[in-house]
Lab assay of single mutants.
Amino acid sequence: VFVDDHLLEKVLELNAKGEKRLIKTWSRRSTIVPEMVGHTIAVYNGKQHVPVYITENMVGHKLGEFAP
């Protein structure tokens, strides 16, 4: 499973602090992992960042699938 390192670091850091804030990313190719559930990730679609709230059903899919 591929997840960009910088994105995973941000998610794990927020989980350690117990925070839930918006994470901006250009990494549409990253796979959604269970650690991301409950976070809102702003995924770049080529024009703007689209906020995507991550749920359990999204695990295993790519971030780009949810930012048309």
Rank of each mutant, 00 (worst) to 15 (best):
F2A: 07
D5T: 15
R29P: 08
L22C: 14
K10F: 08
E9H: 11
V3P: 05
K20S: 05
A67W: 03
L22G: 04
K20C: 09
R28V: 05
T55V: 12
W26P: 10
V1M: 09
V50Q: 14
E56S: 11
V3M: 02
P51K: 12
S27G: 04
I32Q: 00
P68R: 10
V33T: 06
P51S: 12
E19A: 09
H49W: 13
T55A: 13
P34G: 10
G18W: 03
V59W: 04
Y53W: 11
Q48K: 13
V3W: 05
V37E: 09
E56C: 13
L63Y: 01
A42W: 03
E56G: 14
A42E: 07
G46I: 04
V43R: 00
H39E: 01
H6C: 15
L12Q: 10
V50E: 14
K62M: 11
K10M: 15
H61N: 09
W26I: 09
K17W: 06
N57D: 13
I23N: 02
V11K: 01
H39K: 02
K47V: 12
L12I: 12
N45G: 06
R29Y: 12
V43S: 01
K47C: 15
R28F: 04
V11A: 01
K17S: 10
N45R: 09
L63T: 05
Q48V: 14
V50M: 13
V11Q: 01
P68L: 10
T55Q: 14
E56R: 13
K10N: 13
I41P: 00
L22H: 06
A67K: 02
E19Q: 12
W26K: 15
V59R: 06
R28W: 07
S30R: 02
K10D: 10
R21C: 15
H49G: 07
L63I: 05
H39L: 04
V11P: 01
P68D: 08
K10Q: 15
S30N: 02
S30Q: 02
A42Y: 04
H49D: 05
I32H: 00
L14C: 08
L14I: 04
F2H: 13
G18K: 09
G38S: 10
Y53H: 13
H39Y: 05
V52M: 08
P34D: 11
H61T: 09
S30T: 05
V33F: 05
L7R: 00
S30G: 02
G18F: 06
M58N: 06
H61G: 08
I54M: 07
Y44I: 08
K20W: 04
K47T: 11
E56L: 14
N15A: 05
N15E: 04
E9N: 15
N45I: 07
E19N: 08
L22D: 05
Y53S: 11
G64I: 05
E56D: 11
L8C: 06
I32D: 00
G46T: 07
V37I: 14
G60L: 08
